[in-house]
Amino acid sequence: MNPSPMDPRPSAKKDRIDSLAETSGRGGTATAVKDVHVGAAGKVKDTGGVSLIASAWARLRRNPVFLLGLAITVVFVLLALFAPLLAPNDPTKRMPELLEDLSRSTNPVPGPEAGFPLGSDDFGRDLLSRLIVGARQTLIVGVFATLFGLAGGIILGTLAGAFGGWVDSLVMRIVDVMLSVPSLLLAVSIAALAPRPSQWTVIIAIAVVQVPIFARLLRGSMLAQRASDHVLAARALGVKQSSIVFRHMLPNSLGPVIVQSTLVLATSIIDAAALSFLGLGNPDDRQPEWGQMLGASQQWIRDYPHLAFYPAACIIVVALGFTLMGESLREALDPKSRR
């Protein structure tokens, strides 16, 4: 498993998370940021005039790196959505035409033939269809791992950020315990210790690793919000604590969390492959998933490297897409980098 390219520093993680939270938590309010040039949108004052999001979008529209990332992501999502329509064959079925050629001792991985442009996998199933439908499962793993991580993070982060004081301390100690086990070890432990490995243990293993990151991130921006003018104003008006938290603080703190999510999407796909490689992935491969296909291809890598190459290429491209998009978003949202 490759830890996220963005936060491979387990403890720099903390600082980066906090600084990211700070910058965008204050983004909309008056910060003493000097005048900055903003790409094609011309000269914009950052002192509360134009919203952060609008100015960011203006910059992003012209950023080739962002557009490339966006294009890859859109293609991937469309592929995932329409996979069953696009796949020429049933990816779970052993095709009689391929089975006929398949022999463990003489021809373990039949090559391309009519109707099967990429040939078979090692079980007589259509490789192309598996790759296409794999996009959907891969997206499911990525999205759910991210969502679960996000949900856990939001619960912990909101608790800490909204109340502060001893609740904050308690929650942050929990988060520290979680951060104190290196991410890979945590994911591997969870996957290894699950009584019944399945796609969901993979998802949960990857998600749990993300929880402390999201929690810290959200807490940071919530704390910034707590001190902000509009929250103070709401409190002065006698708005209930719960609606301050949910109507005012939480929505305004989600920016950095959403950016982080796009990055987590990429890493969770890579992580799923690593878990499979260690034999801790989903043992049931009827529904194809790229990470799992890659993990399983390991035994064939010497003689049939294409079994590894196709899913690896897919994963790399998609991970690249999400990462480029996420990174550009982050840069665009960071007032310090707007120059």
């Binding site: 089975l99 398949l102 022999s103 463990r104 001792s105 003489t106 079980f123 007589g124």
Partner: peptide
């Protein structure tokens, strides 16, 4: 028969 041919090694 098919199982042995498609999934088991030579000599199985």
């Amino acid at each position: 028969e098919e199982l042995v041919k498609t999934q088991l090694p030579e000599g199985a």
